[in-house]
Computed example of a mutant assay.
Amino acid sequence: MTDTEFLEIVDSTVLSDNWGTLTRHKIRYRRRDGTWQDQIREVYDRGHGAACLLFDPETECVLLTRQFRLPAFFSGKEPFVIEAPAGLLEGAQPEERMRAELIEETGFQVSRLEHVFDVLMSPGSVTEYLAFFTGTYHLKDKVAEGGGEPGEGEDIEVMHVPLKEALAMIRSGEIADAKTIILLQELALRQAGV
């Protein structure tokens, strides 16, 4: 990335380059009043991803997953996180990657996905954005076992949760994952005609 009228990159040092890349940047930032300020920021880049919430209109259920998340454990939160299926793009187009993730994680293959928006998940420290999708599924759309890739450490439980129950689980704290909350609320707004 190059300097702009509001930003000069003075120095960049890679602190870690294992799964993602953590870099410390020394920058000069032009404030709104026109003065320049020296700052140090650490930025984590792990690539971009996609997430999808599928809804079954016959059962009024959403398709969710539950899996162990080490960072949630270290945060003192419930380590078995209920989520909408998602995955890193790893060079693929968002819709293509999302279709593969749905089969891998849930075993369901759907004919149509709708891209709703892209969301910066933690713009204060992480470069990642997620492409958000919605779609419709039916129980007959199951084409594989699902459950994730054991070789990647995945051990995913597939859940069919009534939409009303899933929305209540946000308020109770059972669903605390940001991407899942956003997608559930988007679906609820659509169903309310908003």
Rank of each mutant, 00 (worst) to 15 (best):
E145C: 09
H25V: 13
M169T: 01
I175M: 04
R112Q: 05
M121V: 12
C61H: 15
V161A: 07
D45L: 07
K77P: 04
G124V: 08
F80A: 07
P150F: 11
R28W: 14
Y129L: 06
E95D: 09
R99F: 01
T59A: 10
I82Y: 08
I170S: 01
D56E: 01
I9Q: 08
E5I: 14
L184T: 04
A51E: 02
M159F: 05
H138Y: 05
A100N: 12
I170G: 08
G146E: 10
Q93R: 07
R24N: 14
G49M: 05
R97E: 03
G193E: 01
L70S: 02
R190Y: 02
F68Y: 10
F73I: 02
A176I: 02
E60T: 12
Q67F: 15
Y44P: 09
E114T: 08
T134C: 00
K140I: 00
V81P: 09
E8A: 14
M159W: 06
P123A: 09
E186I: 02
H115C: 01
R41D: 13
F73S: 02
E128S: 09
V116Q: 06
E145G: 10
L102V: 13
Q67L: 15
G148N: 13
G135R: 01
S172G: 09
L102T: 12
R171V: 08
T21A: 09
A166K: 07
K26R: 15
V81W: 04
V158K: 06
A51W: 01
K140G: 00
D141S: 01
G76L: 00
G20Y: 04
E165M: 10
I40E: 15
G193F: 02
M1S: 13
R28H: 15
E174K: 03
G148I: 14
I156N: 14
Q109T: 05
T21V: 13
K179L: 05
Q185L: 00
F73Y: 03
R97W: 01
R69V: 03
E104P: 15
E58R: 11
K164S: 12
P85Q: 10
G146Y: 11
A168K: 11
T35M: 15
M169Y: 03
H160C: 07
R28Q: 14
I181N: 00
F108P: 05
M169I: 06
M169H: 01
A84P: 09
S16P: 07
E154S: 11
E128M: 08
L64N: 08
Y29T: 14
E152D: 12
Q109K: 12
Q191I: 06
E154H: 11
K77R: 01
T106N: 12
V10C: 12
Y129D: 04
A166E: 05
Q185N: 08
P150T: 12
V62F: 02
D56I: 05
A72G: 00
H115V: 00
L120A: 15
E90M: 02
V143M: 05
Q67S: 15
Q185P: 08
G151R: 14
R41H: 15
Q185D: 08
E145N: 10
R97T: 03
M121T: 10
G87R: 06
V126Q: 07
I181E: 02
L187G: 09
K164P: 03
D118A: 04
E104D: 15
E58L: 08
V161E: 08
E90I: 04
D155S: 13
T106A: 13
Y44E: 10
K179S: 02
D155H: 14
Q67K: 14
M159D: 04
C52F: 07
H160M: 10
S122N: 12
V158A: 07
F117Y: 10
